[in-house]
Amino acid sequence: MGFKLLSKLLVYLTASIMAIASPLAFSVDSSGEYPTVSEIPVGEVRLYQIADGVWSHIATQSFDGAVYPSNGLIVRDGDELLLIDTAWGAKNTAALLAEIEKQIGLPVTRAVSTHFHDDRVGGVDVLRAAGVATYASPSTRRLAEVEGNEIPTHSLEGLSSSGDAVRFGPVELFYPGAAHSTDNLIVYVPSASVLYGGCAIYELSRTSAGNVADADLAEWPTSIERIQQHYPEAQFVIPGHGLPGGLDLLKHTTNVVKAHTNRSVVE
């Protein structure tokens, strides 16, 4: 069995187990497998329904001669939608809004960016022009300005110390501490036991640490421990890039980060 097929099978099995364990909360999309990078042309966006009122959005972007996937989250909030992270750029984010209108038909009224990198804030200006209120932590807003990236308009308070959590509509926002970046936030959907790890969490097929220019490698494993301790009931975990899975993604990420750190020390 090929690795790609095995990865998709694991996603399907995880979703099936969740649907059985929580039949009222989960209505997993039966329309197909989780979209992969090879299936999404740059400039297009796919939506994948995880649970009743919960979707991931998947886009792709060219970077350094390669094409990478990027995940975000959409959560229903009454007759409105909360968006977590842009679709990595203005063109993708405009396509995301169009796809949401086509498939869901509810307005996106608020959006949260989970850290300051372009795959999370690139497209904020498109959201703002569409009347979406954009939010991020003060740290993310400051770092985005320093980096020359787009800056969300509103500040999220109460997320300055490791372990801080605040309720934001249908989700809980959690600051686990520094990891992929010093400002990275985690998003949890309690009604569906869905954990969105953003770039602080890796997919299972990833074996290298990737972009760690703004990471705190020493603190990252401790931050992941905080996530595990705060959300032990999480059933569906979405990484910032690639295929979702279960809580095993947290341990896998820790292993990859520690291996990278150990290699760096040896070198």
Rank of each mutant, 00 (worst) to 15 (best):
H230L: 07
G122C: 04
E147L: 08
L249T: 15
F116P: 02
L9G: 08
V54G: 01
G240S: 03
V54H: 00
Q49L: 08
E33H: 06
H241L: 00
E225F: 14
G53L: 07
L13T: 07
S160A: 14
A90P: 10
F116T: 03
S208I: 13
G169W: 04
A94R: 13
V132H: 01
I74V: 07
Q235V: 08
V11A: 10
Y12L: 10
D216I: 15
E267S: 11
A133V: 12
Y68E: 07
M1F: 02
D119T: 00
L96D: 01
A178L: 11
E44I: 06
L127N: 00
L6G: 09
P35C: 15
I186F: 07
D79M: 15
G240R: 03
V124Q: 04
D216A: 10
V108F: 03
L106I: 13
K91I: 12
H154D: 10
V54E: 02
E44C: 11
S181F: 00
G2Q: 08
V42M: 07
V212R: 10
A144T: 10
A130L: 08
S193K: 08
H154L: 04
D248F: 05
A66N: 05
G32W: 15
I40F: 12
L217R: 10
L24A: 07
S161Y: 12
G122L: 13
S70M: 10
I50M: 11
Y68A: 07
W88N: 00
R46P: 05
R263D: 10
L5A: 07
A144R: 10
E145A: 11
E39T: 06
L204S: 06
L195T: 02
T86K: 02
R206A: 12
L159I: 12
Q49W: 09
Q61I: 07
I224M: 07
A130V: 06
S162G: 14
S7G: 04
E145R: 11
G32K: 10
T134R: 02
D77H: 06
V42C: 07
P221Y: 09
P152G: 05
L82C: 13
G197E: 01
S137L: 08
A209N: 04
T182E: 10
Q49T: 07
L249H: 00
S264K: 09
A87M: 00
A21F: 14
I58F: 05
N92L: 15
E80A: 13
F26A: 05
D77K: 09
T182N: 05
R142P: 02
G43K: 14
E172D: 11
D118V: 08
E225K: 08
R110K: 15
E219I: 04
C199F: 01
L81H: 01
V45Q: 04
V171H: 00
V112Q: 02
A21Y: 13
D248E: 08
I20P: 15
L10D: 11
I58Q: 05
E157Q: 15
V121W: 01
S139I: 10
D52S: 05
V108N: 01
N262V: 08
V166P: 03
R141M: 05
F116Q: 03
G131C: 03
G89K: 14
G122I: 06
V112D: 03
S56T: 11
D248V: 10
K102L: 14
V54W: 02
I186C: 03
A111Y: 13
H115P: 00
Y231V: 11
R263I: 06
C199N: 00
A133K: 12
T261N: 13
L13Q: 10
R120P: 01
Y34M: 11
T60R: 07
L250H: 01
L156S: 01
D85L: 00
V257F: 05
Q228L: 13
L10Y: 12
G32L: 15
D214L: 12
G131V: 04
A87S: 15
V75R: 02
M1P: 02
S137C: 05
A15S: 11
L5Y: 08
W55T: 03
S7L: 10
A259Q: 08
D183K: 00
V265L: 11
P239A: 12
Q229K: 10
T109Y: 11
V75E: 02
L247P: 05
T93E: 00
D183M: 00
R46T: 07
T60K: 11
V237S: 01
W220S: 00
I58L: 06
L96S: 03
G53R: 06
R263G: 11
V11K: 05
H230D: 13
L195H: 02
F116V: 03
G32Q: 14
F174D: 02
L81K: 00
A111D: 04
V124A: 08
E219L: 09
G169N: 04
F174L: 11
D79C: 13
D164T: 12
A213S: 11
Y135T: 01
V75S: 03
K251M: 13
N255L: 12
T134S: 11
V132M: 08
F168P: 03
A215K: 13
P41A: 05
N149K: 09
I227L: 11
N262W: 10
I58D: 02
D77W: 09
G131Q: 14
G78D: 07
L173M: 11
G122W: 10
D214S: 08
S155I: 06
V45A: 07
M1W: 03
D85M: 00
H241E: 00
A136L: 02
L24C: 09
I17K: 05
L10E: 10
A129D: 14
E233P: 09
A165W: 15
E150L: 04
I84Y: 03
P41H: 05
A90I: 15
V194R: 01
S70G: 04
T14V: 11
V45C: 03
G163D: 13
H154Q: 08
A90H: 14
M1G: 04
A25W: 07
D77P: 01
A133D: 10
A94N: 10
W88M: 01
P232C: 11
K251L: 06
L156H: 02
H57N: 04
F168Q: 04
R226P: 04
V146E: 12
P152Q: 03
P138S: 14
S7M: 05
Q228W: 11
S205Q: 08
A129G: 09
A90E: 09
I84K: 02
I238P: 02
S193Q: 10
A98L: 11
A179P: 03
L204M: 13
V108T: 15
V121M: 04
P41Q: 10
S31E: 10
A94E: 13
A94Y: 13
G32M: 04
A136N: 02
V45K: 03
L106K: 14
S7H: 06
T93M: 04
I224P: 00
V146N: 06
H230E: 09
F174I: 12
E44H: 11
P138M: 15
V37A: 08
L83R: 01
K251R: 07
S205Y: 11
A218T: 13
G163Q: 14
L143G: 12
I201E: 01
E39A: 11
A259V: 07
L195E: 00
A94K: 13
L10H: 13
F63D: 06
K258P: 15
S22Q: 05
A21D: 12
T182K: 13
L73I: 11
E145C: 11
A19N: 04
S193L: 09
S16C: 07
S161N: 13
S38L: 09
P170I: 15
C199W: 01
V237K: 01
S27R: 06
L243C: 14
G123V: 02
E157P: 15
S30N: 07
S38Y: 10
G131N: 11
S139W: 12
F63H: 05
Y202D: 07
L204G: 10
P190S: 04
P138R: 12
T182P: 09
Q103I: 13
E145M: 08
L24P: 04
I40D: 15
V28I: 04
H230G: 12
H117Y: 00
S191F: 06
H230V: 10
G242T: 02
E233V: 08
T253C: 00
G240N: 03
P69N: 11
V124R: 03
A94I: 09
P221C: 11
V166G: 12
A130C: 15
Y34H: 09
L156R: 02
L195P: 02
M18I: 05
L106C: 13
W220K: 00
A144W: 03
S56F: 04
G198Q: 03
S62Q: 07
V75I: 06
T93K: 00
V266D: 14
T261Q: 08
L173S: 00
S223C: 03
E203C: 03
L9M: 08
G210H: 05
Y188R: 01
V171T: 15
G246D: 14
V257N: 04
Y202A: 06
H260K: 04
H115T: 00
L24Y: 10
T93L: 00
R128V: 05
R263H: 05
V265W: 11
S162I: 15
D52C: 03
P232I: 13
G131S: 12
